[in-house]
Amino acid sequence: MQDMTLLLTALFLPLFPLSMVFNALFTRIQHVALRVILLATWPQIGLAILFTTDTAVPTWMLTWALITALLYAFRMLALRDVGQWTSFLATSWWAVLWLLATDHNQDTLQLYAIGLTIPFILLTLLSANLIKQFGAAYSGLHGGLAQSMPRFSGVLVVVILASIATPLFPNFFIMLKIILNTSSAMPIAILVLLVIWLLWSWAGVRLLQGLIVGTAKPGSEGEVSDIKTATSWLYALILITLVAGSVYFSGVFA
C-alpha cells in the first residue's frame, strides 16, 4: 500500500518514466487556462498524496528523483518550444522537491511548490501570447523579439531568469535549501544538483537567445503588437512580489 502511494506520488511529483504522463498531457492541452491549472495543481496533488502516509522516502527514490531531474535538465538543452521547455523545467524542478520530502512538513513543501511554479505559470501565459501572434512559441523561428516586442522581451527575460533559479527569486532560495538539506545525507548528490542548476541556466539562455536576439523580420512592426504597458507592470508587480516574498521567507536560514 505504501509502495503504491509512493508510486502514485511519483506520477504527480513526476519521476521518469511516469513523468512522461504529465509532459504528454501538457503538450496535448493547448488551452492556456488549462495549462495554468495543470501546473498549479499537479505538484500539490503529489504532495498531498505523499503526506497521506508516514513512510520515510527511501534513498533509492531520492536517487531516482535526482536522475529524473538531471535527465530533464539535460533534455531541455535541445528544446525550442517554449511550452515544452516549461513542462520539462517543471518536471525537473518538482523531481528535486523529493529531496526535501523527508525533513519538511506538508505546508512548507506546498509553499515551496507554489513559489517555484509561479514563474512557470507566467512563462505559460507569455508563450500563449507568442502563439497568438505567430502561431507557435518557438525559439529561433522568429527571433529579434527585443526589437519588435521590447516590453514583452523584458518580461520574458526576467521570468526565464526567475525560472532558472537566479538569485532573489524563490527558486534560488529553494535550490539553496535543497542543496543544504542534501549535503549531509547524500554528499555526492550536491554535485548532481549543481550540474542540474548549470543545465537549467544553459537551457534558459539558449531559449532566450533564440527568442529575443537577432533582427526582427522586415515589415513585422505592423503585424506584431507588444504587450500593453499596464500588462507589463502587472507582470513586474507579480515578479516584485515574488522577490519580496522569497527574501522575507529566506529568514529560514537563520
Binding site: G144, A146, Q147, S153, L198, S201, W202, V205, R206, Q209, I212, V213, G214, T215
Partner: peptide, 21 residues
C-alpha cells in the same frame, strides 16, 4: 549583448555566462 541584433555578440556573451555559471 547590449545590441540585441548582434547574434555573434550574444554567442560570445553566452560563453562568458556559462563560464561564470
Amino acid at each position: 549583448g547590449h545590441d540585441t541584433r548582434n547574434t555573434s555578440a550574444y554567442r560570445y556573451a553566452f560563453w562568458t555566462f556559462i563560464t561564470y555559471r
